[in-house]
Design a binder for these strands. Structure first.
Length: 422
RNA sequence: GGGGAGAUAGCCAAGUGGCCAACGGCAACAGACUGUAAAUCUGUCCUCUUCGGAGUUCGAAGGUUCGAAUCCUUCUCUCCCCA
């Protein structure tokens, strides 16, 4: 099975320039994807792009990962309804460094693969030079006709953002010329920018280049993929702890799980089909979600963190009781809850007896305010140490402690917090 | 340049002097049911609260009034028609 066939059955193929498949089947190709340094870490939306490069490498082609140190200074207007805020150069540098570090975890840059930053070839490119060498080849009419900027032509777009596709187009030209990159990959929203690049390559050098895009990952219920109540799901363990990361995948709907297991894992077709079949017979077991969570958590955070995440899951969502919590050693307890958000509170506060509302809304931020806490408690949404707690006027003392120093707070069914008294 | 319509909470949207912290819908959060799912039902949903209330809202600033989302003045912005 070749690269394109692989993408096709996995549902990772959206569009290609004619000839792309032939090119990939007859030679080993260097192909690139750009990553925007909009944050210090990539999130699971970018995971699709990373996996694409990994597939590419597995099929013997050469991946080039580009971090947009230059393009990040401009801001991609594609399908955005508003002008973007410019990032400071300082945070941009931090973001570039963060993203480069993450990419190294997934792609083996020793085997001919490259990690580049377009700032390197733009930093000494003069404005006049750019206008004469690049701008002259592409007409404004051509640039305005793109779907990706159409909306913005009505509501307003700065010259800076409008020039974005030209900058990205030049990246492609530069990599084509200097790194022999004949193909650019990207999300379907990048089609317009990529094609500006192939056009530029043809007009400047009479060369031929290709494009391949992957579909946007969607959810069956129409809401945005990759978001939870807590916000984005990041690849950085400090921003989204592995337990929450695993939980995100475990919570995917049946319909989405069938789609995601093909996109986000490297399991072969027979294995995946068997898993889907099994899941359809017994959806309640959620083996599909569990396997999906396992594969991608191991890929992103490693086996150890995955084990910790399922251990925590088993305790938190299994038939855990206060007795079981009490029976755990402090070490086990800490390991299990390593990945649960935690707060530290002075033990003396508890010794003196503390009001439940104060503890959860003032001394810690489990709830936003005392009013919020009271309402939640009245709605029966609070558990302490796996036991429902319904008294909004209640006082807590040392008797509520586990292992003499911990208290496990549960807001609703899924939100856990550990308070550490010392 | 002339004429008209409009701006209400995260979004859509009702409200034209007191009964308005503002109908309804969506989204969100919680409860029940379940599989940590979907669908359904129930509750919450400006902020704080000792749950009695208190404070700040209806594009902005002034004004009228005992009382203004609602009336008047000026300003800002959006849309439509004509030129």
């Amino acid at each position: 099975m070749n690269f394109v066939e692989e993408l096709r059955w996995r549902g990772l193929l959206h569009d290609m320039i004619p000839g792309t498949e032939e090119l990939l089947s007859k030679e080993k190709v260097a192909a690139y994807i750009g990553f925007d340094p909009t944050a210090e870490s990539l999130h699971i939306g970018s995971m699709v792009q990373i996996i694409l490069l990994m597939h590419l490498q597995r099929h013997g082609h050469t991946p080039i990962a580009l971090v947009g140190g230059a393009t990040g200074m401009i801001g991609d207007p594609s399908f955005k309804s508003e002008e973007r805020k410019m990032l400071s150069e300082e945070s941009l540098q931090k973001n570039v460094a963060g993203i480069e570090g993450q990419l190294r975890k997934f792609i083996d840059f020793d085997k001919g693969a490259e990690l580049v930053n377009n700032y390197d070839w733009f930093k000494d490119f003069s404005m006049l030079g750019f206008l004469r060498e690049v701008g002259k080849h592409i007409s404004v009419n051509y640039m305005m006709a793109k779907d990706s900027v159409k909306k913005r032509l009505e509501t307003g777009i700065s010259f800076t953002e409008f020039s974005y596709q030209l900058i990205q187009g030049y990246d492609f030209y530069w990599l084509w010329k200097n790194k022999n990159a004949k193909l650019q990959l990207g999300g379907s929203d990048q089609w317009g920018n990529i094609v500006t690049g192939t056009e530029l390559i043809r007009r400047i050098a009479g060369g031929e280049a290709f494009a391949l895009t992957v579909p946007l990952v969607t959810k069956a219920d129409g809401s945005k993929f990759g978001k939870t109540e807590q916000g984005n799901v990041w690849l950085d363990a400090k921003l989204t702890i592995p337990y929450q990361f695993y939980q995100f995948w475990l919570n995917t709907s049946d319909e989405d799980a069938e789609k995601y297991i093909k996109i986000f894992t490297f399991l072969d077709q027979a294995t995946i089909e068997a898993l889907i079949e099994e899941h359809r017979v017994n959806p309640a077991a959620r083996n599909l979600q569990k396997r999906l969570g396992q594969e991608i958590t191991v890929l992103v955070h490693g086996e150890e963190e995955y084990q910790a995440a399922i251990a925590a899951t088993a305790i938190l969502f299994g038939s855990g009781t206060r007795e079981q919590l009490e029976a755990m050693s402090e070490n086990t307890l800490l390991q299990v809850f390593e990945s649960v958000p935690r707060f530290s509170v002075d033990l003396n506060l508890l010794k003196a007896g503390v009001n439940i509302l104060d503890l959860l809304a003032v001394n810690t931020q489990v709830f936003e305010s005392k009013g919020d806490a009271r309402k939640m408690i009245q709605q029966n949404a609070l558990s302490i140490n796996k036991e429902k707690y319904a008294d909004a006027a209640g006082m807590l003392t040392e008797s509520a402690l586990i292992a003499q120093k911990y208290m496990l707070i549960q807001k609703g069914k899924k939100n856990y917090y550990l308070i550490n008294f010392s």
